[in-house]
């Protein structure tokens, strides 16, 4: 009976979520990525050049870590697919009357590392630019730098700093997701302001663009924080060995979170 009720309650929650995802994905998505051709070519080129070293280090890390850790391939496969889905999913924000999407890069960076997340994000952005009219090829470097590099590193460092400061892991994951989302948009505003502003008008344009993002991204960032915290709590409960093996947490921190050592599979 208990099992039946658990499956029923799962179905009650999962079916609406699945239906929402299908409905949302089957609507043309217009979201945060910088669209094709908006940035002047020198700026577009500069963002490509700046993104390249992060991608190269990410590819090197993937090669190294797949040799070292048996579960790294399924983990990076799952994380990449999630970043792709999340960053193409428009979510309506009633207070603003607009749609936008979370990025998913904060949690991805906590799990697989920031450099590997840059590679996963680049693949997602390339597919979206080529086949979904979402983002652009000329602006791919700028989008990789904002969502991939800034999104991943801000989430990663927020989590690291907070866990060093003994903040509970799930709260650290929430704030990492939040910081990752908001800083991604701050970087997008920076890239746009640099590319579009006239001489001496950079700061004014930057403030205007960043402020225009606020009504939509404020709630979306909070949603991203909840999603990051929920997923992190799930991994922490079900496969704490993954987090320990990847160096995300120390075995000692499991006791603080109330997870017994018998649940850890080495």
């Amino acid at each position: 009976m208990k099992k039946y009720l658990a499956s029923l309650s799962m179905a009650v929650f999962v079916i609406p979520v699945a239906a929402f995802i299908i409905i949302a994905l089957s609507t043309p998505a217009y979201a945060m990525h910088i669209s094709e051709g908006i940035l002047p070519l020198p700026w577009a080129g500069l963002w490509y050049v700046l993104a390249m070293p992060f991608m190269a280090k990410g590819i090197f890390d993937i090669k190294k870590r797949t040799r070292q850790t048996s579960f790294f391939i399924p983990l990076i496969g799952m994380v990449s697919a999630m970043v792709f889905i999340i960053s193409a999913m428009p979510i309506p924000v009633p207070i603003a009357g607009t749609c936008s999407h979370p990025a998913g890069t904060g949690l991805a960076a906590i799990l697989v590392g920031p450099f590997v997340t840059v590679v996963a994000t680049s693949i997602a952005l390339l597919i979206q630019a080529l086949f979904l009219a979402h983002g652009g090829i000329t602006t791919l470097g700028a989008n990789i730098l904002s969502m991939g590099v800034v999104g991943a590193f801000s989430g990663y460092f927020t989590f690291k700093v907070l866990t060093k400061a003994k903040v509970p892991l799930v709260i650290a994951a929430f704030l990492a997701g939040l910081a990752s989302d908001w800083l991604t948009y701050a970087m997008t505003s920076f890239e746009l302001a640099l590319g579009l502003s006239e001489k001496g008008m950079f700061l004014k344009l930057y403030n205007s663009i960043a402020l225009a993002f606020v009504p939509t991204q404020l709630p979306i960032g909070i949603l991203e924080g909840f999603a990051a915290a929920g997923l992190f709590a799930f991994v922490l409960k079900r496969r704490p060995d993954i987090l320990i093996n990847l160096g995300v947490i120390k075995p000692l921190s499991l006791y603080k979170e109330g997870i017994g050592h018998e649940e850890v599979v080495y």
Partner: peptide, 9 residues
């Protein structure tokens, strides 16, 4: 319900 790319970018 425009996306922020249309409304902002």
């Amino acid at each position: 319900w425009a996306g922020v790319d249309e409304r902002v970018v």
